[in-house]
């Protein structure tokens, strides 16, 4: 089982990210669960969402306290939230940022593996809106080997409909092609 925590801000699609990835995994014949950190939803406030993916039925409903992967959709939350809290020693941070990894380590003291992607630039280029969720799913899918663009096509179509699904798939594919772990 792999456990993932998403950090973003209300309105950026952190919850949607977890949902889409769970639907993708279920479509691939795996077991998955996704859920938000429940509470009053406020646009712009830091939010978290949780995702578990497994080859076996998942019988845990507690929050994810020791994730294998942390996905940061919005770099500004790193200043107000300790995003690597509980992250396993051999875990992975996947961060939307234009800054180099060394700068992040210096500023936030991250010790785990890090993959970065300038998701905001990709989102603005392809989606024309500053919503990075499908871009970050592309980075996550590549880095963690969890899904391919073909796997997400059906869930994206269902979620975004005919006008927005192709753009989101293109954003996913761009991140999927570009994302890699530091040093690789």
């Amino acid at each position: 089982m792999i456990e993932i925590r998403f950090h973003g801000r209300g309105g950026q699609g952190a919850v949607t990210s977890a949902e889409l990835m769970a639907q993708t995994a279920v479509g691939m014949g795996k077991y998955a669960q996704a859920f938000p950190s429940f509470g009053p939803e406020r646009r712009g406030a830091p939010v978290t969402a949780f995702l578990r993916i497994s080859d076996h039925p998942i019988r845990i409903r507690e929050k994810v306290y020791e994730p294998d992967v942390v996905i940061v959709l919005d770099p500004t939350v790193m200043s107000v939230t300790k995003v690597d809290s509980g992250l396993k020693k051999d875990g992975t941070l996947i961060i939307n940022t234009a800054h180099p990894v060394s700068a992040l380590r210096g500023q936030f003291g991250f010790t785990q593996k890090i993959a970065t992607i300038d998701a905001m630039a990709i989102a603005l280029d392809i989606l024309k809106v500053p919503i990075t969720n499908t871009v970050m799913l592309g980075a996550f899918s590549k880095v963690m080997g969890q899904a391919t663009p073909a796997d997400v096509k059906e869930p994206f179509n269902h979620r975004f409909g005919p006008s927005l699904a192709p753009k989101n798939l293109a954003a996913f594919e761009k991140a999927y092609a570009e994302a890699k772990l530091e040093g690789e």
Binding site: E19, A22, Q33, F35, R61
Partner: peptide, 10 residues
């Protein structure tokens, strides 16, 4: 509520 109602699952 939430811990079941708001879960996405198979």
């Amino acid at each position: 509520g939430f811990t079941l109602s708001h879960f996405i699952e198979p």
